[in-house]
Amino acid sequence: MSDTLLSVQGLTRHFDVSKPWLNRVIERDDRQYLTASDDVSFDIRKGETFALVGESGSGKSTIAKMIVGLLEPSAGEIRFDGKAMDFASGAAMRTLRRRFQMIFQDPFASLNPRWRVGDIIAEPIRTFGLMRGEEIGREVGRLLEVVGLSAADAAKFPHEFSGGQRQRIAIARALSSRPEFIVCDEPTSALDVSVQAQILNLMRDLQDEFGLTYLLISHDLSVVRHMSNRIGVLYLGRLVEVADAKRLFTDPQHPYTRMLLDAVPDLALSGRRRTPVTGEVPNPINPPPGCAFHPRCPHVMPECRQIQPHSIPTATGTAACHLLGQGAPRAQQG
């Protein structure tokens, strides 16, 4: 029996970013596609927190949206608890949908400003028909208390709350369908640090209490380090490294992971030596050929410019870098 809750295989998504038809004809341009997610595969085990980190254009949010059905994959498969997710089939998805939820980045946009907090939290309960009548009100009150607010807050509107309190409401809504799996898309990046700590602690407590599995999307390595068991590093839509959290920070395999770690400001003022970070993420519409990271890589080799590296098993995961597979190509040459 496998303890994998979510399995993503070869997940790919293209966006058509072509100019309008008339412009293309006149300017003799071809259709243009942006590959936001390119053949991404990973598994998330029950009860763990799996994090996807990356900078802008890395495709982390696109992947999150495909997993919860907000975007359709161009190719690839998502399996939840062994069952293939097919968002087109309404009836079959209904039971699956109840089991996963999402927490969004911006607590000011994720709550409908015209709805009372109670109705916001009750929406999943009502949509899935989990309870009726008075029961809903009691459940909403209980959920509000679970996330550290009071049951009386159900009658208020979102604008009466601070950013951190709103994120608590969003979490209560996500919990209301009693899910097993929650996709957290930059859940604290819109919050101040002191509030961020409250939300991160709350998320951990809830994970212990309800046995939740998280997919955490973030650009903040410190947050990821604090929250997750395993981490996937994305660069321009490709998964460049997957590793156990501890291992990733002590022994990064991919040069990009190393660079990201070096870019984190050193709060401890330890004066640790850091390689200066160079360059910026290129335009994802025309990513560099071969390994997309090669123009910024300090260890670039000729094959990096032509051949896209495959994921190679490492101590606790995988990494896609020619440096790691060096043995193989060299042997072929010799």
Binding site: L70, G90, R97, M102, S110, R114, A170
Partner: peptide, 25 residues
């Protein structure tokens, strides 16, 4: 906006999203 996405994640019907979420706003 994310509140509409939140409703879509739980599979709320488009008509309901339009009438109850978007219309008032």
């Amino acid at each position: 906006k994310e509140y509409v996405q939140a409703a879509r994640v739980i599979g709320a019907h488009p008509t309901k999203i339009l009438v109850r979420h978007i219309l008032p706003n």
